[in-house]
Amino acid sequence: MGKPGEVPLKTKVRGEVFIDDLRCKGCGFCVEFCPTDVLAMSDGYNPKGYHVPRAVNAAVCTGCNLCGLYCPDFAIFGVRNLG
């Protein structure tokens, strides 16, 4: 809660994660290093036979794009949603 007179933030900064299944090679970097544990490897395979990550805890994604910075295959990225 803010002090009297301050405009409180309506919501927390939230984000969204996007995954390109076709590019993913299943290295797991994004799952391991997501700071809010949004991601988990799925049991399913992509057409190339790799397990791909899924946003199992999407509500806590901040859109920090650390997954995007780690992903060696340019297959995942996060986007911040303000408001």
């Binding site: 076709l22 090679k25 780690y70 060696p72 295959d73």
Partner: peptide, 22 residues
């Protein structure tokens, strides 16, 4: 990126792509 050249040739878990992001 030259999008038409992706996916690249690097193996799963190779760090080169990560360095390219940086």
């Amino acid at each position: 990126l030259r999008e038409e050249r992706i996916p690249h040739i690097w193996c799963p878990g190779c760090g080169i792509g990560t360095s390219v992001n940086c």
